[in-house]
């Protein structure tokens, strides 16, 4: 596991403004009750790490935040907009919420620069030149401006994931969702992606990350949420969570992933 540089979470400000409010939310896949009575509040500027065994519903939970998955009961309010069947609200939320996927999901038929400018041009209606300037700025931030005119297939996995992060940032999102961003990467590439995410956290971005990178959680998270069987089992600040877990299920999970 990569050990990112330690920063003091206290340096990063958390406001009282609510970014995401999930109340009594339930979700089923067919008859399978995948998310059960989820209650969760994320403040603006907060960095949440969601962890748990596979099949615990953590990816589904994060994907409910921009309605890549539909919930059947309860309420999800993202950035002041409630997610319902209303397509307009969904598109509004999606343009304010960036998402980074496990498998990058870059558009292989477009160059890196086109990948980055597509949504700003078509969704935000920003002039092409301006969108390209923004794109180059964020490519600089993720430290690969020289790749702008290549195609995704020509980049390494780590580089592709950094492009994917930059693509989300080009929409100037208020909240960033990370769905296991390092799980599909070779070990030596995990660090470059985590460093990018830490830089982002330092800039005060509201982040919800599903990840197994416990070093990352200790370094930047305000809060760690542990899920099992579709429920939130425990949430606490990282230090308490790792050093003094309360539930037996958490203890077992931590012993399994930190044990070797």
């Amino acid at each position: 596991m990569a050990e990112p540089a330690m920063t003091n979470p206290a340096d990063m400000s958390v406001s009282d403004e609510v970014a995401v409010q999930i109340t009594a939310m339930n979700k089923w896949y067919g008859t399978f009750h995948v998310l059960r009575d989820i209650n969760m509040t994320v403040q603006k500027g907060e960095r949440i790490v969601v962890c748990g065994p596979s099949g615990s519903g953590k990816s589904t939970l994060i994907r409910c935040n921009n309605r890549l998955e539909e919930h059947q009961q309860g309420q999800i309010i993202v950035d002041g907009t409630e997610l319902t069947n209303d397509v307009k609200n969904i598109d509004k939320v999606r343009s304010e919420v960036g998402m980074v996927f496990q498998h990058f999901n870059l558009f292989p038929h477009l160059t890196i620069l086109e990948n980055l400018t597509l949504a700003p041009i078509w969704v935000r209606k920003i002039p092409k030149r301006e969108a390209e300037e923004t794109a180059m700025y964020f490519l600089g931030k993720v430290k690969i401006p020289e790749q702008a005119h290549k195609f995704p297939g020509q980049l390494s996995g780590g580089q592709q994931q950094r492009v994917a992060i930059a693509r989300s940032l080009c929409m100037k999102p208020r909240i960033m969702l990370f769905d296991e961003p390092t799980s599909a990467l070779d070990p030596e590439m995990i660090k470059e992606v985590l460093d990018t995410m830490i830089d982002l956290a330092k800039d005060g971005m509201t982040m919800i990350c599903v990840t197994h990178e416990m070093g990352f959680a200790q370094a930047v998270a305000n809060r760690v949420i542990f899920m099992d069987q579709g429920q939130i089992v425990e949430q606490n600040e990282p230090k308490e969570f790792f050093n003094n877990p309360k539930s037996d299920r958490t203890k077992l999970f931590l012993s399994q992933i930190l044990g070797h």
Binding site: N66, L68, M99, N105, F107, H109, A119, V123
Partner: peptide
């Protein structure tokens, strides 16, 4: 097409026809 292409287009806030025209169809037709 991998499902991720549809999800990435959705997550960026593209509407249905934009996603079809800019992301899905260029790849599917190819």
């Amino acid at each position: 097409l991998p499902k991720g292409q549809f999800e990435a287009a959705d997550a960026l806030g593209l509407d249905y026809w934009q996603a079809q025209r800019l992301i899905i169809m260029p790849q599917a037709l190819k």
